[in-house]
């Protein structure tokens, strides 16, 4: 339910910083990055090149992809060093079919 003028904070500010974490952009994807942890060398290039802050890193290790935000641009897969090749882009439709 969208707030009316009486309930909005004054002056157009957004008080709840970083609340876009609750906004899904994952539905934009046509391609899905699949992370193969066993091949990962934890160079973290995917992390530093991700436009959507969607690479999950814990204790310096790549742990996966936040699919709620990932738009499937494929930069991570492209920049993943060829010797590792730990991220694979698959068509979302194919992925969905396979999952079902």
């Amino acid at each position: 339910m969208k707030k009316g003028w009486k309930d909005l904070p004054i002056g157009g500010i957004i008080e709840d910083a970083a609340n876009s974490r609750n906004f899904e952009t994952g539905s934009w994807r046509t391609f899905r990055p699949i992370f193969h942890e066993e091949r990962c060398i934890n160079c973290l290039l995917c992390f530093i090149y991700c436009p959507d802050s969607a690479i999950i890193v814990e204790d310096g290790k790549m742990k996966g992809i936040n699919y709620f935000h990932c738009k499937g641009c494929g930069i991570c897969a492209k920049e993943c060093p060829p010797k590792a090749n730990a991220i694979e882009m698959v068509r979302e439709a194919d992925y969905a079919e396979k999952e079902s």
Partner: peptide, 23 residues
């Protein structure tokens, strides 16, 4: 932290203007 000066679309702009009238 808060965000100052965001983008309003048609779903919020008029509410912000109405609120301004109140001031």
């Amino acid at each position: 932290p808060f965000t100052f000066g965001p983008l309003d679309f048609h779903d919020y702009y008029i509410e912000h203007k109405r609120q301004q009238v109140e001031g």
